[in-house]
């Protein structure tokens, strides 16, 4: 069966990959420029910890990971809560000069990564742990309709908020002190930006997997910034390159029987390297 003939199998995962790539490619513009790449990895782990925590909570309520759960106990609700809490904590002003926000992000990443393993090793849910892996960190090959819908909603909410507040997000990121003097509520804008990032990462991680999410957030935007110095072109390239890597990556993984998420990220890394090569050649001239 050719790739095209098998489209009924890959239509939804491909759509999820394209939607996630576009959303994360756009958000990557802020992630890269604000130098919070590691925060996106921490949010991904925190949302995973939320999912694991919901299974643990469900086990106390007698609910197995694959069973229907009430909304307040659902993995999605917990993933959002954990990611939002992480985003809010990072946005809060640090009162300690000894603990930087970077250290807080590292704490979130390491703590969440370790706790996920601890929770999954709990005898209460250990027998389902092999199923929990995909539920935690997704799998770009097979995407559930429910995950695709959640991704579409997250994209619509995020892009609507960014359409309204893009100028303020940009000013608050570029020059926060002057933005404050100009009446921009910098801390609230930072929080809103981080919450949209947390929501998008929490949903995209479950749909696509942790590795592609981290890759799409960092690499296409980084490459776009190497290819252009024009704001609108950088944004368009970031989204476009991200979607290109998602589509081509899915196709190559299908035809060559390679791991989907890894191929997508490898392509994005290749595009980033091309950007670096272009910039290097410009400097040599």
């Amino acid at each position: 069966m050719s790739f095209w003939e098998a489209r009924f199998l890959w239509q939804e995962p491909m759509l999820a990959a394209l939607l996630g790539a576009a959303l994360l490619g756009y958000l990557g513009f802020f992630v890269v420029l604000r130098r919070i790449a590691f925060m996106s990895a921490a949010l991904s782990q925190l949302s995973g910890l939320g999912v694991a925590a919901s299974f643990l909570a469900g086990s106390f309520a007698g609910i197995a990971p694959h069973d229907e759960t009430p909304w307040w106990l659902s993995p999605t609700t917990f993933a959002f809560l954990f990611a939002y809490a992480g985003a809010a904590l990072v946005t809060l002003p640090s009162r300690s000069k000894r603990v930087s926000s970077e250290s807080m992000v590292a704490l979130g990443y390491l703590g969440a990564s370790a706790l996920v393993m601890v929770v999954l090793s709990s005898p209460r849910i250990a027998q389902e742990a092999h199923e929990v892996g995909d539920l935690l960190f997704g799998n770009a090959v097979v995407v559930k309709r429910e995950d695709l819908v959640q991704l579409a909603i997250a994209a619509a909410v995020t892009l609507s908020l960014h359409a309204l507040f893009f100028r303020s997000f940009l000013f608050a990121s570029f020059d926060p002190e002057t933005a404050r003097v100009s009446g921009v509520p910098v801390r609230r804008m930072d929080l809103l930006l981080h919450l949209t990032l947390a929501m998008s990462i929490a949903v995209a991680t479950r749909a696509l997997g942790a590795l592609p999410v981290f890759g799409f957030v960092v690499l296409p935007a980084g490459a776009a910034l190497l290819f252009s110095e024009r704001l609108h072109l950088v944004l368009a390239l970031s989204v476009g390159l991200s979607m290109l890597c998602a589509a081509l990556g899915y196709y190559l993984s299908w035809t060559l029987s390679l791991p989907t998420g890894s191929v997508m990220v490898a392509l994005a890394a290749g595009v980033f390297a091309l950007g670096g090569l272009k910039r290097g050649l410009e400097r040599l001239r």
Binding site: L33, G183, V184, E229
Partner: peptide, 20 residues
Amino acid sequence: AYPLSVLQVTLMGRAAHLGL
């Protein structure tokens, strides 16, 4: 690192007049 033109940076000065 920000890919902004001179005019885009200058226009940020209108933030207080334009609101959010």
